Computed example of a mutant assay.
Amino acid sequence: MNPVSPIRKIFQGVATRQDMFRLFDRHKQRPNRFEGDAAELYAGEWFEIGQAQCDYMLDLLPPLWIRGEMFAMREFLTGSLTSVFFTLNIDGRIRHFHGYCDLSDRSSPERMRSSIIKRESRPMKAMSREERLEHIWSSTHDNYRGYAGERWPERDRGKRMVLLYGGKVGTFLKLLDDLSDAEIAAKLPVQLRSLPDAIAA
């Protein structure tokens, strides 16, 4: 049985067309990119897009299927993992989303849909620590992020890292998961820094 990847929001706000294409393959720098199956990296990731982006993707190729307010792309990213696009009415507003669903599990798109609605129906905007870290990874340029290599302790190799500015110390690399609250705040856009913490995404 395949492990279930957690459903998670990876970008705060509405992704532009340029953002969308970057987010489609935000793990492209991973070590050994062309070896093994990357499904676990991508499965469960989702983010919001605009109507124009959703319409563009619908017109790009005939969809694999359309089910009410969602459609699946015919081209698979890897194995049974593909893009599913959602048009959802949340609190009286029509919004559009992209998510990676593993279609070997027929309930995957519906679970994704339910998770998006639950997450986006919160009465107050909030971000969990995990969402903050995912947004930092998603919005950091490829030149300023990467994966720990041979210079790092063996236990850390392959983990995600980002470039930080340390004042007099200059720039340095740090594991994404080890960022302090102050470092996270410094890496987030100004409008996201003051959002309250969410216990769970």
Results as ranks from 00 to 15, higher is better:
L176F: 09
P62R: 04
A38G: 12
Y100G: 01
V4D: 08
A186F: 01
L173R: 03
I199S: 14
S107F: 14
G158N: 06
E120S: 02
L23P: 13
F71A: 06
G158P: 02
D178P: 02
I199C: 12
D55H: 08
L192C: 05
G167D: 13
E183W: 09
I10N: 02
A148F: 04
G92Y: 00
L163H: 10
L173A: 03
L163V: 08
F24G: 00
S180W: 02
L175W: 11
L179T: 00
P153D: 10
D37F: 11
M73P: 04
E75G: 08
W65Q: 08
W137T: 09
C54S: 12
A39L: 14
I90K: 13
A52C: 04
M73A: 03
V14W: 06
L188S: 06
D177I: 11
I136V: 00
F97C: 07
L77C: 04
S108Q: 01
D25Q: 13
W65R: 11
G166N: 07
P109W: 08
I117D: 01
Y42R: 05
L175H: 11
A126S: 14
G92N: 00
I10S: 00
T78N: 05
L188I: 08
T140H: 10
T16S: 14
D91Y: 11
S121N: 14
D37V: 10
H135T: 13
G50L: 01
V84E: 07
L60Y: 09
H141W: 03
H135E: 13
L23E: 06
I49F: 01
E110Q: 00
D197N: 14
I199A: 14
A39F: 07
G149L: 12
L61Y: 13
Q191Y: 05
M112W: 00
H27D: 05
R122M: 15
F47Q: 06
R111S: 05
F21C: 01
R93A: 10
R74A: 12
G68F: 10
N32A: 02
R145F: 06
Q12I: 05
M73Q: 09
F97W: 14
R111L: 10
R113I: 00
P63Y: 07
K9M: 11
R145W: 07
S114T: 15
N143S: 14
K168W: 14
V162P: 00
I117C: 02
W65G: 04
Q51Y: 15
D91H: 15
A52Y: 04
T171W: 06
F85M: 10
D197Q: 05
F11Y: 14
L77W: 01
P189E: 07
D59G: 06
R22I: 05
Y144V: 09
K174E: 00
G79C: 01
Q29Y: 02
R155Y: 10
E110R: 00
M161A: 09
K28M: 09
L192A: 12
Y144N: 15
R145M: 05
H135W: 12
A52R: 15
L179C: 02
H141Q: 11
E35F: 12
L64I: 02
D105T: 09
S139M: 06
Y147L: 07
